[in-house]
Each structure stands twice: as C-alpha cells, then as structure tokens.
C-alpha cells in the first residue's frame, strides 16, 4: 500500500489529499460533498451507528486515514474510544457494544467483506433493530465508506503518519 500520492493536487499550494485530488473533477467533488453532508445530517439512522460502521470499514479496508478520523456528532452520542477499540475482530463478544451495534457490524462485514456472513440470524437481528429506511441509509453509508477508502488507498493518499483527528461532522453548506 503506497503512502506516496499517485495523483497531484489540483489546488495550487495544497498538498495531495483526498479533497485536493478530487478537485481534478469538480463535478464529482461537488456532488460527493453534497451527498456526504446530506447523509451525515440525516437523523434517520443515528450518527453513532453510522460511525460504528465507518470505523469497521476503516479496519477491514486498512484505511489509515479513515481509521484516525472521528466525527464529532458520534462523539456527542457517546461513542468513546473504549467502545471504538472493541470494533475489531471478536466484536460479537464485546460488553461495550449494544446489540444494535453488533447487528450493524455484522451487516457491515457482510456488505464490505463477505455476503455469506449475512445469515438468517444476522438478517433477523438487523431487521429487529433497524427499520427498512434505516437499513437503506446504512447501506448508502457503507457504499460511500468503502468506495471512499478504496479510492483513497489506490490513489496513494494514505498518510504516512496520522494521529487521532476529530473533525466536524459533514453538514450542508447552509448549515455549516
């Protein structure tokens, strides 16, 4: 996995990072920013559950950038590091993660890793904890998390060194 950018920044004076590289395609960048803000600002599915799924995706895809970013909305909903630490292999036995969070994690693993993991029991658990509309929103999030992580990694935009970084949760421009 390369930590040397494979694409240059399209913004003068800025190093190559996801935003400055995506600026080579302004229409894609604009549509993504709009979508990601709408996704995170929707409260159909709690930000804490979205962040649980995003953290799991970060570990499975080996996205170091994703793994070190925290969105403040989920922190405000109580997703502390002691809980994030349990979003690892063996999360099923965690006593810090709720049953709903474990159902989300199992679905996350099935979508981003192995669809065979979505057994009848896993599907029943997901439907017990999430409404169809919430599952749709989770599916959208996982699609974006996975695509973002893989695009970032394959364009060589993984940071060499990065500490934990709390960022404002993406929000629509008029709300920011």
């Amino acid at each position: 996995m390369s930590t040397t950018p494979r694409v240059s920044s399209a913004i003068a004076g800025e190093p190559a990072h996801f935003g400055s590289v995506l600026a080579h395609q302004p229409a894609i960048a604009s549509a993504f920013t709009d979508l990601y803000a709408a996704f995170w600002s929707s409260d159909v599915l709690a930000a804490r559950l979205k962040e649980v799924a995003r953290m799991r995706n970060a570990r499975v895809t080996e996205c170091g950038f994703c793994r070190n970013v925290r969105f403040d909305k989920a922190l405000g909903e109580g997703l502390g590091e002691e809980i994030v630490d349990d979003i690892d292999w063996g999360y099923e036995t965690s006593d810090k993660l709720s049953d709903a969070e474990k159902a989300v994690l199992k679905f996350t693993d099935a979508l981003i890793h192995d669809p065979e993991l979505l057994t009848g029991d896993a599907q029943a658990a997901l439907k017990r904890h999430l409404s169809p509309e919430q599952i749709a929103e989770l599916g959208l999030g996982l699609t974006l998390f996975l695509a973002l992580a893989k695009a970032l990694i394959t364009m060589g935009l993984e940071p060499e060194v990065m500490g934990r970084t709390v960022l404002p949760t993406p929000a629509p421009a008029e709300m920011a």
């Binding site: 995506l22 979508l111 981003i112 394959t154």
Partner: peptide
C-alpha cells in the same frame, strides 16, 4: 490525471454497488 481520478471513483463505487447487490 483527470480521468484517472474519475476512474478510481467509478471502480471503487461500482465494487461497493456489486457488494450491496450481493446482500
């Protein structure tokens, strides 16, 4: 460069969509 960026997004997004279909 411009099309490589679009290609990276399209390929990553389509991989994720295939996975969404499989579940």
């Amino acid at each position: 460069e411009e099309k490589f960026v679009a290609f990276s997004v399209v390929a990553a997004l389509f991989d994720a969509e295939c996975r969404a279909e499989k579940v």
